[in-house]
Simulated assay, not measured.
Amino acid sequence: MWSRSRAFAVVAVAAIAGLGLAGCGFQPLYGSSTTTASGTRLSEAMSAVDVQPIPGRVGQKVRNELIFSNTGGAAAPTPRYQLKIALKERDIQQLVQVTGNAQGQVYQLQAKYKLTDIATGKVIHEGTAISRAPYTRFQEVFANVRARYNAEDRAAETVSQSIKSQLAAYLATT
């Protein structure tokens, strides 16, 4: 059992450590009061990113995920940035049987993006996001299609979250 003085000492040390961290300039990336270096709120800067259309079903999924996560479903303000994304899809066969049939597959989605400042027309940030989603192939055609769609959706969600995190980190520090 702890004595009162020992418990008080632990609380005092925790409080002092908390006060020490308060002045270090650390702020959570997705906090409601997080600001960019220019003084605008990060949420406002993220909602001012115009995500350009991406071809294909998976491209539409990535774009919709980014738009919704940046705006929260609200109307977007006048865009300050333009985001262009190019996707590359690939299937990797796993668990290949002696007959040559593959039961397991891994769907890989790679996204290369460029963030452009609309006012200057310059590319201010670019990067890559990659996701892999495994799925199993079955005898039934419909089951294969659904399994592949599910893997595509999971990969698209992961890639959009990665892009959002990279953009937020960039916009928060510049």
Rank of each mutant, 00 (worst) to 15 (best):
residue 1 M to R: 09
residue 1 M to L: 11
residue 1 M to V: 14
residue 7 A to F: 13
residue 7 A to M: 05
residue 7 A to W: 08
residue 8 F to L: 13
residue 9 A to G: 03
residue 13 V to K: 01
residue 15 A to E: 02
residue 16 I to F: 14
residue 18 G to Q: 02
residue 18 G to S: 01
residue 18 G to H: 03
residue 19 L to H: 02
residue 20 G to V: 10
residue 21 L to R: 08
residue 23 G to W: 01
residue 25 G to N: 07
residue 25 G to W: 03
residue 28 P to A: 14
residue 29 L to D: 06
residue 30 Y to P: 08
residue 30 Y to S: 08
residue 30 Y to M: 07
residue 31 G to R: 06
residue 34 T to I: 05
residue 35 T to G: 05
residue 36 T to P: 03
residue 36 T to E: 04
residue 36 T to H: 02
residue 36 T to Q: 06
residue 37 A to L: 09
residue 39 G to C: 02
residue 40 T to R: 11
residue 42 L to I: 06
residue 42 L to A: 09
residue 42 L to P: 07
residue 42 L to T: 00
residue 42 L to R: 00
residue 44 E to G: 01
residue 45 A to G: 06
residue 46 M to W: 08
residue 47 S to R: 12
residue 47 S to A: 15
residue 48 A to F: 04
residue 48 A to V: 10
residue 50 D to F: 12
residue 51 V to T: 12
residue 51 V to R: 00
residue 53 P to V: 08
residue 54 I to C: 06
residue 55 P to D: 11
residue 56 G to P: 09
residue 57 R to I: 12
residue 60 Q to W: 03
residue 61 K to A: 15
residue 64 N to W: 01
residue 64 N to Q: 14
residue 66 L to M: 07
residue 69 S to L: 08
residue 70 N to D: 10
residue 71 T to G: 07
residue 71 T to V: 04
residue 72 G to A: 10
residue 74 A to I: 00
residue 76 A to R: 09
residue 76 A to M: 07
residue 82 Q to M: 09
residue 82 Q to T: 02
residue 83 L to C: 10
residue 83 L to Q: 07
residue 84 K to T: 14
residue 86 A to P: 00
residue 87 L to C: 02
residue 87 L to F: 05
residue 88 K to A: 15
residue 89 E to T: 12
residue 90 R to A: 13
residue 91 D to R: 11
residue 91 D to Y: 08
residue 92 I to N: 12
residue 93 Q to C: 05
residue 93 Q to L: 14
residue 93 Q to N: 15
residue 93 Q to H: 11
residue 94 Q to E: 14
residue 95 L to P: 03
residue 96 V to W: 04
residue 97 Q to S: 14
residue 97 Q to E: 14
residue 101 N to R: 15
residue 101 N to W: 13
residue 102 A to C: 01
residue 104 G to I: 13
residue 105 Q to K: 15
residue 107 Y to T: 01
residue 107 Y to E: 09
residue 111 A to C: 09
residue 111 A to W: 03
residue 112 K to I: 07
residue 112 K to P: 03
residue 113 Y to R: 05
residue 117 D to K: 08
residue 118 I to Y: 07
residue 122 K to Q: 15
residue 122 K to M: 10
residue 126 E to N: 12
residue 126 E to D: 13
residue 127 G to M: 06
residue 128 T to Y: 00
residue 129 A to L: 04
residue 131 S to T: 03
residue 132 R to C: 08
residue 133 A to K: 01
residue 136 T to Y: 12
residue 139 Q to T: 13
residue 139 Q to F: 12
residue 140 E to H: 10
residue 140 E to Y: 08
residue 141 V to K: 11
residue 142 F to A: 11
residue 144 N to H: 07
residue 146 R to L: 13
residue 151 A to V: 01
residue 151 A to M: 03
residue 153 D to V: 05
residue 154 R to T: 05
residue 156 A to H: 00
residue 157 E to G: 14
residue 158 T to W: 01
residue 159 V to G: 05
residue 159 V to L: 07
residue 160 S to E: 05
residue 162 S to E: 13
residue 164 K to R: 14
residue 165 S to H: 11
residue 165 S to P: 04
residue 167 L to Q: 02
residue 167 L to F: 04
residue 170 Y to G: 06
residue 171 L to F: 00
residue 172 A to N: 04
residue 172 A to V: 11
residue 173 T to N: 05
residue 173 T to R: 12
residue 174 T to L: 00
